[in-house]
Computed example of a mutant assay.
Amino acid sequence: MKFILSRFGFYVLAFIAAVTINFFLPRVMPGDPIQSFLGRLAMNGGQITPETIAALEALYGYSSSTPLWEQFFHYLHSIMRGEWGMSTRFFQPVFDVLGRGMLWTLLLVGSYLLVSYTLTTLLGIYVAWKRGTWTDSIITVGSVVVSSIPSVVMALAMYFLFASNLGWFPTAYAYNPALDPTMSAEFVGSVAYHLVLPLMCMVALGMGNVMGMRSNMINQLGEDFIVMGWAKGVKDEKVMLQYGARNAILPMITSFAMSVGAIFGGSLIIEIIFNYPGLGQVMFQAMLARDYPLIQGYLLIMTIMVLGANFIADCLLFVLDPRLRTQLD
């Protein structure tokens, strides 16, 4: 319990540091969200008065005349109350805007984690067991080559080949816009159909994890308890899965937690290219509009997810690895 509490305290401090960066980072970017909004208002023939500017600053909680430190403490107080401000791009509460995109991003990223880590873990175990064979060479070299392709290049190539040219998959949206979003078989099938191509792209980019699992597995196969298992005549399948793989998978838990931020960052690019209505699209539009509240809300969600994933990974390692508990005792 002492270990869990110490890790929790560490992540609380990390959260405070991330929130501080989250507040100041958008403000050092060029541009002004209020002026950006007023520019769009003027282009549409709206009348701009001092009263209009004062009302907008009060609505969005931003004022160029208010000191940054005062804005910062107001921001912290708002976070604690669950008030993340109003979006200057969508004219809606940040929580509502992010909530709509979060649903689709979690579906995409969750599907990726399930498919990719299951596939790469099994392939890593298999090629480690078959190391030195032609199967090992093909899978390891292929996984390294595919995962080395930049995400932009991979997404654009798949988009133009499978969606634009061949027409096998849709080019936009998370489901057929003609369907009502209900839990009908037709709607669920449409969601799955629109998910396939972005998911394929992310899984291909994550194939580099095969090498990590392969290395962990090979290291375990050289341990004394593996040799002892063979000497006792234990079946190869049991040695491979229960002796080797169970220990080799522990470092992958840490790797998974540390890659959460990169996974969401990669999904942002893929969502933009495939016009998938997740948080990536929301963040892209927020950056173009200098929407500080929405940018801060997005970064805050990413911070919570990354720190949460790492804390869960620490707890799992503490439970699954008896060596860690022994060292702490």
Score class of each variant (00 low, 15 high):
Phe8Leu: 15
Met29Ile: 10
Met29His: 11
Asp32Cys: 10
Leu38Ala: 08
Gly39Asn: 09
Ala42Leu: 04
Met43Glu: 14
Asn44Leu: 08
Ile48Asp: 05
Thr52Tyr: 03
Leu56Tyr: 08
Thr66Gly: 06
Thr66Ile: 14
Leu68Cys: 08
Glu70His: 15
Ile79Gln: 02
Ile79Lys: 02
Leu98Trp: 07
Gly99His: 07
Gly99Asp: 06
Gly110Gln: 06
Thr120Glu: 01
Val127Asp: 11
Ala128Val: 12
Asp136Ile: 04
Ser137Cys: 05
Ile138Arg: 05
Ile138Leu: 14
Val141Lys: 09
Gly142Thr: 13
Ser148His: 13
Ser148Asp: 09
Pro150Glu: 12
Val152Lys: 02
Val153Arg: 04
Ala155Tyr: 07
Ala163Cys: 12
Asn165Met: 10
Leu166Val: 07
Gly167Pro: 01
Phe169Pro: 02
Tyr173His: 13
Tyr175Lys: 01
Asn176Tyr: 00
Ala178Asp: 14
Leu179Gly: 09
Met183Val: 14
Phe187Gly: 07
Gly189Pro: 06
His194Ile: 12
Met200Asp: 11
Met202Arg: 06
Leu205Glu: 03
Val210Pro: 04
Met211Val: 13
Met211Gln: 08
Asn219Gln: 12
Gln220Leu: 06
Glu223Ala: 07
Asp224Tyr: 04
Phe225Tyr: 14
Ala231Met: 09
Asp236Phe: 08
Ala245Ile: 00
Asn247Asp: 02
Ala248Tyr: 01
Pro251Ala: 03
Met252Ala: 12
Phe256Arg: 00
Ala257Ile: 01
Met258Ser: 04
Met258Asp: 02
Met258Tyr: 08
Met258Phe: 08
Phe264Leu: 14
Phe264Cys: 08
Gly266Trp: 08
Phe274Pro: 13
Gly278Asn: 10
Phe284Tyr: 15
Gln285Leu: 13
Ala286Cys: 04
Ala289Ser: 15
Ala289Asp: 14
Tyr292Pro: 02
Gly297Ala: 06
Thr303Val: 02
Val306His: 07
Ala309Leu: 08
Ala309Phe: 06
Ile312Tyr: 01
Ala313Met: 02
Ala313Lys: 03
